[in-house]
Design a protein around this nucleic acid. Structure first.
Length: 212
DNA sequence: ACCCAGGCGCATG
DNA sequence: CATGCGCATGGG
């Protein structure tokens, strides 16, 4: 299983995916970064189309900021994000993440992403509602950090090639080691695009659904 | 009417 | 450590 080859094939076949999709004007501004983080939480085991509706509602109600979410009553927030599913849990997750951001970084994601990678990853994982995939999605797509995001599709892809590991970290190490030659911005770009392409691949292929 | 989607936390054994 | 279960909506 040569990952670099596979990446090039996917890229040729599907074209650039342009993740992470964001509605904010300034794609590097705080608003866009926050939208990515909110999206990372809302997309947990949910169809992205449903997440887009929730993000649209949040935007429409001017709730796409840590301060706004922090001040909004849970039941009101829950109504707004309802379409993304698990809304009671996700309301709590958004509030916990927003409170964390305000308390530790004055609500600034740019400030948050200045922290050393492993420490920040640990802080995010310590939050209720943020697991490895959500944390890594935030780090890669909002923070531009070189962490490979592993999801269900990635595991299905590995399974197709007879590659199987136990933990999330094991899968991640496999990808990061094999792609360790690439450096700097190019690595972030590749990790970004590759993960998006794997999801793109998984959406068509209804293959190997039996895998967990 | 089912099945699934860009997971996670928690309770068990 | 490792399985199993609840969480919830909308589209195929």
């Amino acid at each position: 299983m040569k990952l670099l080859k596979l990446y090039q094939q996917f890229l040729r076949h599907y074209g650039p995916q342009g993740w992470w999709p964001v509605s904010s004007r300034n794609k590097n501004g705080e608003a866009a970064l926050f939208e990515i983080c909110v999206g990372a939480i809302l997309t947990q085991n949910a169809a992205w189309t449903n997440v887009e509706k929730a993000l649209g509602s949040l935007r429409h109600k001017k709730l796409l900021s840590a301060r706004a979410i922090n001040q909004t009553k849970p039941l009101v927030l829950g109504q707004v994000i309802k379409s993304s599913g698990y809304w009671r849990q996700k309301t709590k997750k958004l509030k916990i993440f927003s409170a964390f951001l305000l308390k530790n970084y004055r609500g600034s994601l740019k400030k948050m992403f200045r922290r050393p990678l492993e420490e920040l990853r640990g802080e995010l994982l310590a939050l209720w509602g943020i697991g490895p995939e959500t944390a890594d999605s935030m780090l890669l797509y909002a923070g531009q950090r070189p962490v490979f995001v592993i999801d269900a599709y990635t595991k299905r892809l590995c399974q197709k090639y007879g590659v199987c590991f136990k933990t999330y970290l094991d899968y991640q190490k496999f990808f990061e080691r094999q792609l360790s030659k690439i450096q700097g911005r190019a690595k972030v770009k590749l990790f970004n695009e590759f993960h998006a392409l794997i999801v793109r691949w998984g959406k068509n292929n209804s293959n190997v659904k039996s895998f967990k």
